[in-house]
Write a protein that binds this DNA or RNA. Structure first.
Lengths: 240, 240
DNA sequence: GTATCTTTGTGTCGATGTGACACGTTTTAT
DNA sequence: ATAAAACGTGTCACATCGACACAAAGATAC
């Protein structure tokens, strides 16, 4: 019987094998291209979920952190390294996985779809699906995806994480389209531009669009240097 | 060797015993009384951390969710049920726990210290410590506490979670003291009152303080009913 | 019972940010 | 030359925010 004080942080002397379980990470990999916001999903062929799609995830190995595991999954599935990702929350229903007790931690990441290349030709089962056309997913992945999407929407309004998904040179309209696609809301064009200008994080490249059959727009780039300075000094005041 | 597609969500057929580990929850139990913001800590007598204090946590059992485990820990340590708590993040350094591989999920809760009673007389090692006098803690609990405190401060500015820690009848000055203690910042009295009034969530009880040797203040209570309505309708616009 | 102490309660002004809103400009295509 | 398409710009009303000072209420001391 446990002493009143005894717990994982005080007096116990060994870890019972009975209380061990599997941990996984599940990544909601958001991607953006000019068609809109998409999510990378894979076919799930596990009995009882056959035909459904699922998020990308894997078991955490005994000698790695959860962040290591996420990095591993992201690299395997996108070939990209150094991706931005963020922990969202845990899912721990004892019955959530048919193979047994698996607690999972959900993460989301966000990449430029044009940077993405299929890593392995065997991965025919990987697919970008529009955020508006998500089918029924296996396990509790529907809920995970929802929670991660909410988190992304909250994050992107207060942190300029979206700019690395823009082309190097972009127009204000492309930027607005990006925010409208991710947040699924419309902005007033004039107010959006006023806001972005007031942040003073865009560099006017003094160039204009080419090959468009209408008045060409001015091109901008994002001032990552200034952004990082502001971030360090704590004076970043981004809000959309 | 793993097939390109094989992972926890697709084709594997069994969970390897080798990849199993222990999971714990650690709770930062914040408490408030008129002396200020405190944290409930316990003595840690585990070799290599002897003499240090630690957060309250426990191993997650195979048949319970993380939330169940948190509820269990909170009830054991405070005797209180139905406490508010929130997941913060995971800590998964393979070397973070001397007994072996233990991934932990951090949660914080927030209670009225006057509601708290020592549950078990053996728990002489439990103590409320002022947020400004936190000693060195065992494991990575320093970091966990910091992260949870940051989260609490962020949360309390946008959600009126603090009102259940007030007496049933309170003065605006008591409320301001509460926010100042938790956030460790000062508010202008007039602006604070204007803000709170504009939220329209306080009920003027038309009573005044008693037994004070100065001008007595008006007493208010929190309109939980209206708050819950606003919460449901999504019109809650709380920000301090 | 008057003076003093302590804490309460209250309003204004200037600055800043936000939502709503319309028209002339630039380029290409015909 | 004209039409089509998207670009680029400014104002006004309104709400919010920080800064700031003084009179009122009750208790206490003399």
């Amino acid at each position: 019987m446990m002493n009143a004080t005894e717990n994982i942080n005080t007096w116990i002397t060994h870890l019972s094998a009975k209380a061990k379980m599997s941990i996984s990470v599940d990544c909601v990999i958001f991607g953006y291209d000019e068609e809109g916001l998409k999510v990378l999903l894979i076919d799930c062929n596990m009995p009882s979920y056959e035909g459904k799609k699922s998020l990308l995830g894997d078991l955490v190995e005994v000698n790695e952190t959860l962040e290591n595991a996420v990095t591993r999954v992201l690299q395997k599935r996108t070939t990209l390294t150094d991706l931005y990702f963020e922990e969202v929350k845990s899912y721990s229903d004892p019955d959530r996985h048919p193979l047994g007790r698996v607690i999972t931690l959900a993460y989301y990441s966000f990449i430029k779809i044009s940077d993405y290349k299929i890593h392995d030709t065997e991965d025919k089962h990987l697919e970008w699906i529009s955020i508006n056309e998500i089918p029924d997913l296996a396990f509790d992945h529907q809920k995970i995806l929802e929670d991660c999407y909410l988190r992304l929407k909250k994050k992107i309004r207060t942190h300029p994480i979206g700019f690395s998904l823009m082309p190097k040179k972009f127009t204000l309209m492309q930027l607005q389209n990006f925010y409208e696609a991710v947040l699924q809301i419309k902005f007033d064009r004039r107010n959006f531009r006023r806001k972005l200008n007031s942040l003073d994080l865009l560099i006017d490249l003094e160039e204009i669009q080419d090959n468009v059959s209408h008045r060409p727009a001015k091109l901008y780039s994002f001032d990552f240097k200034k952004y990082n300075q502001l971030l360090k000094s704590g004076d970043l005041n981004f809000a959309l």
